[in-house]
Design a protein around this nucleic acid. Structure first.
Lengths: 214, 214
DNA sequence: GTCTATAAGACGATAGAC
DNA sequence: GTCTATCGTCTTATAGAC
């Protein structure tokens, strides 16, 4: 996972996103440190001291930039969800047919959960530790992600490429395959993110394709 | 989720498993309390005081029956994994063909993660919070579960019912669909465990079935 | 904006009475 | 086997110097 890719996902919207000097930005450094810690140990097992020390700061140094540990989780969760949604929207727009759109979506989403499995774990498995207000704020992004997949399934059904009994249930199952990659993936598994993308894109198409005429 | 079903999963092997009186057994009551708390909040966000109070005990009362909070997690994780494995082994043995075995395995595993979504969350998502020794002890059970699915896939490939590019990768994707049910399922979703069983059993077969001859 | 020092309380686990 | 009381430690977050 390249550091710049993570920075692109985490850097504040208004930030100077071109400069490598962004890594020196303290807020970004804290977010990267928190992302590593949350992904490794989970939100509640991570201490603010751990985050501060990974970022090269004193325990108090974090609070100049973030009001609480939970706000830090929220910022990571929100940016991660936005990044994931943007990926799916772009993949759908670029595909010529529903079949290719589905392959691109599920393959790309699976690859993203492998390449960014740390951020992926935070997005998918630390979501429930957000405060009620922040959880609501992120819930809208999660629904957008569900809808991208459901829309592609409906498109494919209408062209006759797909045969799907229950569109929302199938969308959920397809997303489950990709989401779960963040749980089991580690850099030492025998699959590369690219191999996962190809394999899971194929599996997705097999799952919904209408039977060939006999 | 019936209470007796959970008790059957949690009661100590030597326990009087027929009597309803088992609920009164303090160790079982503590395990049920811990299972609820861990599933709701996660292991690290759960306090021993919370477990004790749910079980109707003082904070010290837990330690007569369990040496630590982590040992309690281990007991729940171990029994849950055993239960899940037994389910898969029984489903495979009862099925006449690889196709029906796969339908029974993935459908049954998915249903189990819905009906017992609390225990399912502990098994699948709190696994990493076990101590190194206890994690190793449970890892064997997880491998057994993977192997049941991979064996059925290999059987189906050899009979020609299935066409699978990569058996371990496909087994992983099939398990992912079922495991992720524990993440999103709640009693208020619009799917019943029975509907999930039927839908996911079908999806599993579609994912691996060889194309019909033309 | 970063530090040292510390407040204020919660944490896992234990001691010892009954 | 359960209780009350508490130990020693760690926790999030803040105060105030620089």
């Amino acid at each position: 996972m390249s550091e710049t890719a993570v920075l692109a996902a985490l850097a504040p919207e208004g930030g100077r996103q071109s400069a490598v000097g962004d890594v020196a930005d303290t807020a970004v450094r804290i977010m990267l440190a928190a992302a590593d810690a949350f992904a490794e140990r989970g939100f509640h097992a991570t201490t603010t001291r751990d985050i501060a020390s990974r970022a090269g700061l004193s325990p108090a140094g974090v609070y100049v930039h973030f009001a609480s540990k939970e706000v830090l989780l929220f910022e990571l969760s929100r940016r991660g969800h936005e990044r994931a949604r943007d990926l799916l929207v772009a993949a759908t727009a670029a595909a010529p047919t529903p079949t290719e759109a589905l392959r691109a979506i599920v393959g790309g989403f699976s690859r993203w959960h492998a390449e960014h499995y740390g951020l992926g774990r935070i997005v998918q498995f630390e979501f429930r530790h957000l405060s009620a207000e922040h959880r609501d704020a992120v819930l809208g992004l999660r629904k957008e992600i569900d809808e991208v997949v459901a829309d592609v399934l409906r498109d494919g059904v209408s062209t006759g490429e797909f045969e799907v009994a229950d569109v929302p249930a199938t969308a959920l199952a397809l997303l489950s395959m990709a989401i779960d990659v963040a749980r089991w993936y580690a850099p030492d598994v025998r699959y590369t993110p690219e191999a996962i993308e190809a394999a899971y894109g194929d599996l997705a198409v097999r799952l919904v394709r209408a039977p060939s005429p006999r």
